[in-house]
Amino acid sequence: MTGRQLPSRDYLGLKAAFRDLVEAAGGGTRAATRTRGSASLFSRYGAVQEEMQAPLDVVADLEAETGDLIVTRALAALHGYVLVPNPEGVPSAANFGRHLGVLAREAGDVISGLGEALADDGVVSDREARALLGEVREAQEALAHLGSDLTRVADGDGRAIRRKVAP
């Protein structure tokens, strides 16, 4: 792959992510019913010997179909970013007490899981790492919710729920 901005392995990684996406969508034939293109074209998009990549609209359609942002997450990682969903259903008032509880629980799950993984042999296995990734993503989402509420309050678009402190 000449004249490109990134090393070949990065483009091959995107092809691998697209193959995973097609698989998650039920295979090439089923995926072709959910977006434009054909099973043979999807095969070419994922083939290491082909320079062509899947078009963004095809990726968007298949990610919407599967509910999993496989290629988008790979692209974000390629550029050093972590993909975290935007908070949904933002309440009219920020409840920072609730945020503290959620953050403590989610971070505690990560710390506990990591401690358990290290306890037996001092190493995190690939299986343990995959299990921990889900916990880490939940903690990241909790932080994103907090960040959204803090931004709303800082911008004057939201108000914090205040609790009276007993004397």
Rank of each mutant, 00 (worst) to 15 (best):
M1Q: 14
G3N: 11
R4M: 11
S8D: 14
D10R: 12
Y11C: 04
G13F: 01
F18M: 04
F18N: 00
R19G: 01
D20G: 01
V22T: 00
E23W: 00
A24C: 03
A24T: 04
A25D: 02
A25P: 05
G26M: 03
G26V: 01
R30N: 06
R30G: 06
A31Q: 03
A31P: 05
T33G: 09
L41W: 02
R44W: 04
G46P: 03
G46K: 02
G46A: 04
E51F: 15
E51I: 11
P55Q: 02
D57E: 08
D68W: 01
L69Q: 02
I70L: 02
R73N: 04
L78K: 11
H79G: 05
Y81D: 02
V82S: 04
L83G: 08
L83I: 04
P85A: 09
N86A: 14
P87G: 13
P87F: 08
E88G: 08
P91I: 10
S92D: 15
N95W: 07
E106G: 14
G108Y: 15
D109Q: 10
I111M: 15
I111A: 15
L114K: 15
G115E: 15
A117V: 10
A117D: 05
L118P: 06
D121I: 14
G122R: 12
V123P: 01
R127S: 14
A129Q: 09
E141I: 05
A142R: 10
A142P: 09
L143F: 01
H145K: 12
S148R: 13
S148F: 13
D149W: 01
R152A: 07
V153F: 04
D157G: 15
D157Q: 15
I161E: 07
R162S: 09
R163F: 08
K164S: 04
V165Q: 13
V165D: 05
P167L: 09
